[in-house]
Each structure stands twice: as structure tokens, then as C-alpha cells.
Design a binder for these strands. Structure first.
Lengths: 147, 147
DNA sequence: CTCATATTTTATAATAATTATAATTTTACA
DNA sequence: TGTAAAATTATAATTATTATAAAATATGAG
């Protein structure tokens, strides 16, 4: 238990962030719940552990984390930002039925398109939208029931 | 002039949309300004032509257009939605210096990643972020000036 | 053509995510 | 142990968007 906390502390320090209770709790939450949570998801999940927690602290912490490269902010077709603890290049699939967000790997050989020759590319977002296999199976079952 | 209006009318009708003054003006604006405008961009640009125009009408029209496939809503790393009159698959590059958004083609041979086998993919967003050539050149010039 | 009805547009208010500001609490360390 | 800096919180402000209902416009039957 204490070891875990120390690992989390080191993780933050390595990223040039002073550890604090809130920051450790948020980091722990993100590592245990790699579901691309929104600020509100994080807030609601930590509220019973930390009853004085404020939403502003979540935003402050996430801004700090994003600036130090601990999380990547992801923008899907929704108005809330989401936070991804996995900052390595990968794609996201959002199912518009269950709203779940799936990760998928991206072949590393993305070559710069000719049109962007001379551009500096710092970041890449690849988002797919559709229906996941789970939800597709459910739909099929419903069709059967309805005849 | 009239011919153009008729072409615009037909374009809407073909997309199952009843033409109206507002809809035609917005469509015309989008075709003449393929700059991925926000609702506010469109509103401000049309306000002098149509002084009674309301922001709500822009949102209504864009929702209608998006539903009928006349525009694609694009979500970049900003809170406002943008609208793209080009609904064919292509990528976007946003320069974080000049904020301009560039289009670039995507090689058609995007194969479904194994992880998404059995998923229905309805839509793909590919967004790159960085500094465009223009702004990079300007930066270089500033370095020179500064010594 | 004219009235009734449906559609479109507008004005207004409500909502929700985020940011700004300043006050309070906690931490660090002289 | 006291003080300055940093972190956290409460509160209010901002902004994009949506909801609602009223007003304006278009449509179509008689």
C-alpha cells in the first residue's frame, strides 16, 4: 500500500510535479480507471474519499498534468474534455450506443502527407466513431426478438 | 447571379432540404469560405446582409445541414464546433500559432485495426496539431532579427 | 385571392463546461 | 515557531449551446 503511494509520488516527481494528496489520488484514479474520464467523472469518483474536493481542483490538476505530459487531453464529438493517462500515440473509437471509448494501436509508419511538407507536427488525434461489437450483437438480438 | 441561386437551391433540394433565404445564404457562405467556420464566424459574416439574423438560426441550420450530410461537424482541441462543407474523408491540421486549419488528403487504404474487428465504423476524424510552414518561417525570421 | 395551417425564424431564457478571482488552508523551511 | 509560498476551495463570470415559446413567413385548400 505504502509502496504504491511511493511509486505514485515518484511518478509525479519524475514528471516535475510536486506530489500532494489530491494529485496522488487523481493519478491513482487515472491509472486504475483508464476509461478516458471527464473532469466530472473524476470529481464524482473522488468525492466520497475527499469530501472537501472542489471541481476547480480537478481542472487545475488536469491542466498541470496535461502541461507536464502526464495525461493527454482528448477531444471527441462531445463538449466535455476527456483525459487519457496513456500518452503514447494510439487511436480512439467511440461507440455512439454505449458511449464507451476503445483504444486501438496505430501503425507507426504514419508518413507526413505531402501537403504538410515543412509543417511541424506536434500531436496527432485519430478518432473513429460507430457501433462497437458488443452493441452490434445486442441490436442483432433485438431484431430477432422482434421477429 | 440568379443561376447561382438556382444551383444552390437545387443543391439543398437534392439533400432533402427546403430552400429558404437563410439556408441559401449560409450554404453560399460555406461554399465561398471553406475555412471550417464556427457558428459565430458564420453569424458575424452574414449579419450585415441579414440584420435580423439570430444565432439560434445558425445552430438550427447547421444541425439540419449536418443531419442531411451537407456539412460535417469537426471537433478540434477547442470548445466551439466547426463546420466543414467538404464531407469527403480528409484530415485536418491546426496551426496553434495562426489558428488556421489546413486540409490534407488521407490515403484511402485505411484498414480497420484488428482491435476493431466486428465494429461498425461510421466516421473517421484525423487531426494533426503543430505549426504550419508560414508560421515556422516567420519564427525563423524573428530569430534572425533578434540576433 | 384569402384564410388557416405548417414551417421557419427570432427573442429570450436555461444549461453546462470551463475559467477567473480572491479567500482560505496547507506546506515548507528559515 | 512564524512566515512566505504553494495548493485548494468557494464563488462568480464567461461562453457555447440548447430549450421554449412567440412572431414572421410560406403554403395550399377552398
Amino acid at each position: 500500500m505504502k509502496d504504491t503511494v511511493n511509486q505514485l509520488k515518484e511518478y509525479l516527481i519524475k514528471h516535475d510535479i510536486k506530489p500532494s494528496t489530491i494529485r496522488l489520488k487523481i493519478l491513482e484514479y487515472l491509472l486504475n480507471n483508464p476509461i478516458h474520464p471527464t473532469a466530472d467523472d473524476i470529481y464524482k469518483s473522488l468525492l466520497d474519499q475527499m469530501p472537501t474536493l472542489s471541481k476547480t481542483s480537478i481542472y487545475n490538476t488536469m491542466d498541470l498534468f496535461a502541461g507536464k505530459g502526464v495525461v493527454k487531453v482528448i477531444s471527441l464529438d462531445e463538449k466535455e474534455a476527456r483525459y487519457d493517462i496513456n500518452t503514447c500515440l494510439h487511436g480512439h473509437f467511440k461507440c455512439h450506443v454505449c458511449e464507451r471509448i476503445y483504444d486501438f494501436p496505430i501503425s507507426c509508419d504514419i508518413q507526413t502527407p505531402q501537403e504538410l511538407e515543412g509543417f511541424a507536427i506536434n500531436d496527432i488525434d485519430i478518432n473513429f466513431y460507430g457501433i462497437c461489437q458488443n452493441c452490434k450483437n445486442k441490436e442483432r438480438r433485438i431484431w430477432k426478438w422482434n421477429g
